[in-house]
């Protein structure tokens, strides 16, 4: 299904990456990449495992510092921010982790209430409950309120992970391998949820994946990352399906896609 791109505002760049380098010892993960992410856009960073995709979004979220280059999020250069300013920026960013990263010792409800209670200390218990119920309904898991993360399936954990970020109503969503380890039907549910989040919350998103179906279903634009550099950027058809680049073609050929 072709996505409607009318909601994308190309005059407003929410994330701007310029000449970004990151190495771990002798392993040069990112080698001078440039990228713009526009308001309302779902940008998919597609690539094989170990090509630095997760490193890229961890730099965007300020979890890792770049060796050189700049990452500007909502007009603020991330690695130049003081802790308070970075925390204020992070409230506008939602990060959905590859393995969900739900707090094991808390129930689903407590997981969702955790960031809300800490940033809105004046909020009443009833208001917190209402917000938790609202996001649980948005991800279709209202009955999971009192369950522990260990009692949830992989797909449910992903949904709760997304719900935990939605409770703060972020402007930007970062998804790290949202469909990794899920069966095709659950993967499609998660892809649909990502699109619903984009529509309902008007978020701009960076989706890190090696799953071509996920890239095709969720991406307004695809950036193919190989060996620490973007090889192709464009629609799924331009960047992947009809690519003339040998590495991209072989990556595409080795994957099953509808």
């Amino acid at each position: 299904m072709k996505k409607n791109n009318a909601h994308i505002n190309k005059d407003n760049t929410v994330v701007a990456i310029r000449n970004l380098y990151k190495s771990f010892g002798d392993n040069h993960v990112l080698r001078g990449i440039d990228l713009d992410i526009y308001q309302g856009e779902n940008l998919v960073v597609l690539g094989r495992s170990g090509t630095g995709k997760s490193v890229l979004i961890k730099i965007i979220a300020g979890l890792l510092k770049p060796d050189s280059g700049t990452v500007t999020v909502l007009g603020q250069e991330v690695d130049q921010l003081a802790t308070k300013e970075l925390d204020a920026l992070r409230l506008k960013i939602g990060f959905s982790f590859q393995h969900s990263a739900l707090y094991d010792s808390m129930t689903v409800g407590e997981n969702l209430a955790f960031p809300l209670q800490r940033h809105n200390r004046s909020l009443s218990a009833d208001a917190v409950k209402k917000e938790v119920a609202r996001v649980l309904e948005a991800v279709g898991l209202s009955k999971a309120l009192h369950q522990l993360p260990s009692e949830l399936s992989g797909g449910q954990r992903k949904r709760i992970g997304i719900a935990r970020t939605l409770i703060m109503q972020p402007a930007i969503m970062l998804y790290d391998e949202p469909t990794a380890g899920l069966d095709p039907i659950t993967s499609m549910d998660i892809n649909n949820l990502i699109n619903e989040v984009q529509e309902s919350y008007h978020t701009s998103s960076v989706i890190i994946t090696h799953d071509l179906t996920c890239a095709k279903s969720t991406g307004d634009r695809i950036a193919v990352l190989l060996d620490g550099q973007f090889l192709q950027t464009g629609s799924f058809e331009e960047a992947v399906e009809n690519s003339t680049n040998e590495q991209v073609k072989s990556f595409y050929d080795y994957n099953f896609i509808d």
Binding site: A61, L63, D87, R90, F95, H99, A101, D104, R164
Partner: peptide, 17 residues
């Protein structure tokens, strides 16, 4: 340690806690 390796500590950090 298990919170660190399962990214739960990172999750707290990115939610500005």
């Amino acid at each position: 340690g298990s919170m660190r390796v399962t990214e739960q500590i990172d999750a707290m950090e990115v939610s500005a806690v």
